[in-house]
Structure formats: structure tokens, C-alpha cells
Design a protein around this nucleic acid. Structure first.
Lengths: 206, 206
DNA sequence: CCGGATTACCTAACGGCGTTAGGTAGCGTG
DNA sequence: CACGCTACCTAACGCCGTTAGGTAATCCGG
């Protein structure tokens, strides 16, 4: 009957594991950026951190588990960027415009990350519950941002997320590294704002 | 020095090959629809047409070559649908509205096809020159459609293709089989039309 | 400082993938 | 009837993600 003795080491091990996992995830981001979201193998990822492929299973349960961590990290990064940009804005309209711009910039800066977060590209990968909750937070942030503008229509928010992801997706799919679609975000913001607010705000009644 | 003798058989062979290729492509569409664009193997595809995997190489040079044919077929199908819908419209505005609606319907009807045609999902697959020309034809059709409305701005056309693919992509990525984004196409059409034409048409000068 | 437990890696191997090589029944035609 | 070609097959290669099992190095209480 093996009692648990010597607790302290377990904490140290977990700490070192956390470091190794971070290193592996950084290497995975780099491989994804260089060769596409699915264009690398566990052998290559292992080599990038000085290991053989099977050793990666000490730190992650599967390749999909690595994708799940990348998904969560990407969500947290985007949330951080959006929150910072929104905090800097002085008016609701400015927060909306700058938030939209930041979203598209974030997306086109890393095509593989865009695919992982917003397109179901890997048939076997489904985000874990915790990771998906982070994705929901992103859309809620956008929705709240719109609500401050007086746009309480859920359909309007859906249309806006579709427009933003559409611009980003067309950019990275058809002209990676270019600006042809990315530069349209301000124009799209203005047009969206004009059509969705004019329907409710210029008419004083209701 | 083997001269080519007996020409007729060669033609018959090519004809039968065409039939077999069509059968294989049909099975591939079905597998892609059921299991995702990349969620099937050549063994499964072969089994679906009563062959082993290596025998498929009689008809296609590689799996990517099969994807290329599917890509071309998808483009031709979409072109056919759009041309038919546009021909039925009586006014430029109606053609625009119905064409947009048809585009989104076509896309959400078959998620894997949408991924193949508009999202770079398979790292190893790059459309052949001929197939890509068909994809260009699609965007040109949309651009011409807009031009008939007096929208000659290339940026406006880009924004519109981004909006349409964005709606379709959000639909199939976040709620496959649903209508949450797909139903917004008419609203998006109206908003787009309002903002892009009001900037130029109500002002008579210029 | 010793000895056993634990850690952190390794090699070997499995089944499946896309793909290539080589072989063979059966059909169509001179 | 015999030949050549067609249309398939099996075997095999290297790579994939993954599992099993083994082994040096390290840690820590006695």
C-alpha cells in the first residue's frame, strides 16, 4: 500500500513540466507559422526542442492535445490584445473601430493561428470545453463592444464577426502577407456603423 | 520502333477512364461530405468504388490530383448555379441579391466543398493553373454583377466577397447545418448596397 | 555518502497513411 | 489461336501518430 511520501518534489516536477510544455508550444507555433497549421509532425516538433517524438507524450496526451493548448493560448492572446486596445479607446465608436482593426491585424499576422481559432480545419480536433469557453469570450467581447454603441441586435453582431473573419480569411487564403483585404477593415467598420445605427438612432422615438 | 496502330481502342479506353474518374470523384465528394474534406483515405475511397488504394493511381496521379479535380468541379458547379440565378434576375439589384443568396446557400450546403474552394485547408494542395482560372472566373462573375449596379470599385467587390465567404465560413465552422449566419445574407446585401451606392449615386455630379 | 525511487529520456514496434514497383488474370483483336 | 494491352492485384517503402518497455541520470531520506 504505497502512501504518498515526500510531497515537495511533485510540485517541482510540475513546475519543470510547465516550462517544458511552454517550450514545446513555442516550437509548435513556429512550425505552424513556417509550414502551415498541419504541415509538421511530432518528430519535427520533438527535434525542435531536442527530443524524439515519443518523449512529447510525457507532456501532452496527443497531438490534438497540443492543438488544444495552442487554441487556448491563441484565444488568450487575442483577448489580451482586444482588451488592451479597447481600454485605450476614448469613445465607443473609437473602441469599435480600433477593436475591429486589431482583430484583423491579429488574424492576418499568423494565418495558421487564424485557421486554428476560427476555421474547423483539423477533422480530428475539437476544442476542449475550457478552450471553447475562451473562444466564446472573444465573441462576447465583440458583442459587448457593439452594445456600447447602442447595437443590441444579436444578428448585427453575428454579421460583424462574419465580416471580420471574412476579411481575414480572404487575406490569408488568397494573398498571404498582403494587405488587399486587411486594409478594408476601416471602410467596413464605417459602413457597418452607418447601416446598423441609422436604423435606430436617428429616429428619436422608440 | 513501335508505330501507333489500331487507334480506335485508345479512344474507348479514354472514354472508360473518364467514366471511372467520374465515379471516383463522386465517391470522394460523398466521403468528404460525411467525414470532412481530409477525413478519408485512399483505401476508403478505393473501397467505395470496389478497388484497392493503389489502383486509384491508374486514374489519378496522386491524392492532391483528386483534390484538384474536386476543386475544378466545385468551381464549375458554383459558376453554373450563379449563372443560372443571375440569368433569371430581371433587375441588377435583384441579380445581386439572388446571386449573393445563391452563393451562401451553395457554400453552406457542403462545408467540405467550401473549405476546398475558399480556404487553404490542405497544406500540400495548390490548385493547378486551370483549376485556379475557374476560381478567378467566380470572383469575376461577382465583380461583373456589382459593376452592373454601378459599383466599379474593386475594393467594394473585395469587401463583398469577404462578407459572403465570412457568413458561409462562420456558419459551417460554428454551427454546421444551421441558419444563424446564412439567414443574414439578405440583410448584408441590403446594407452593402445602401452604403456603396449612396456614396456615388445620389450625388448627380461627378 | 549510500541506495532505492523517481524522472526524463530513449529505442522498438504497431497499424495506417500515401505512394511505387512488379506481377497476373482476362479481354479484344489480328 | 496467340499476342498485347487493360485493369486490377499484392508487396513493400518511408513516414505518420501512438504505445510499450527499457535505461541512464537525478533526487532525497537515512
Amino acid at each position: 500500500m504505497p502512501r504518498q511520501q515526500r510531497r515537495p518534489p511533485a510540485a517541482r516536477v510540475e513546475e519543470r513540466h510547465r516550462g517544458a510544455r511552454g517550450q514545446i508550444l513555442n516550437a509548435a507555433w513556429q512550425l505552424a507559422a513556417e509550414r502551415g497549421l498541419t504541415g509538421w509532425s511530432l518528430s519535427e516538433l520533438g527535434a525542435a526542442v531536442g527530443m524524439r517524438a515519443p518523449s512529447l507524450y510525457v507532456y501532452f496526451a496527443s497531438k490534438d492535445a497540443i492543438y488544444d493548448e495552442l487554441f487556448a493560448q491563441g484565444c488568450r492572446d487575442l483577448l489580451g490584445v482586444l482588451r488592451q486596445v479597447i481600454a485605450q479607446g476614448t469613445t465607443p465608436a473609437e473602441r469599435f473601430r480600433e477593436g475591429s482593426r486589431a482583430f484583423v491585424e491579429f488574424a492576418v499576422a499568423h494565418p495558421a493561428r487564424l485557421q486554428l481559432l476560427f476555421l474547423r480545419v483539423i477533422p480530428s480536433f475539437i476544442p476542449s470545453e475550457g478552450s471553447y469557453a475562451l473562444a466564446i469570450e472573444i465573441t462576447q467581447l465583440l458583442t459587448d463592444n457593439l452594445r456600447q454603441l447602442g447595437v443590441t441586435d444579436d444578428a448585427a453582431a453575428d454579421l460583424w464577426t462574419a465580416t471580420l473573419t471574412g476579411l481575414a480569411t480572404q487575406q490569408v487564403s488568397n494573398e498571404p502577407g498582403g494587405r488587399r483585404w486587411a486594409r478594408l477593415v476601416d471602410r467596413a467598420s464605417a459602413a457597418f456603423l452607418a447601416t446598423t445605427t441609422q436604423a435606430h438612432s436617428p429616429t428619436p422615438e422608440e
